[in-house]
Amino acid sequence: MSQEALVAEIRGLRERLPGITDAAVAAVDGLLVAADTAAEVDPESLAALAAASLGLARRTATVSGRGPLRRTVTYCAGGYAVIYAVGDTALLTVLGDEGLDLGRLHLETGALIERLNDLLCGRAT
């Protein structure tokens, strides 16, 4: 039941915001939990790379003393790859094209991450 809710959440994100092409939820060890990706994107690889990036970014944040990590954004010529931590054990990664409004994405994902965390920890109603 909560698995369907998880899928509905990430699909809903793509439908709400123009410019999101793919999204996936993975554990911090890189194991894929749920994916909403186009056929060209391999969700397993995406999850593994996102986990690696998040780990690096967290360490970088700690070592550089800039406070807790908020998110990781990879800027590409044709869009963005954004990674958010979901609690301590999972992550949300979002791919978007050039039209994606990052400001709006960050606003939208705030509450979404809370809900994903609740779902993953089995706290959802």
């Binding site: 698995q3 998880l6 939990v33 909403d36 969700p43 089995g122």
Partner: peptide
């Protein structure tokens, strides 16, 4: 029209 574009939930959530 094909499964390639479907949303997938590949692993059971950890609490399951």
């Amino acid at each position: 029209s094909q499964e390639g574009g479907e949303v997938r939930a590949l692993l059971a959530p950890r609490h399951a």
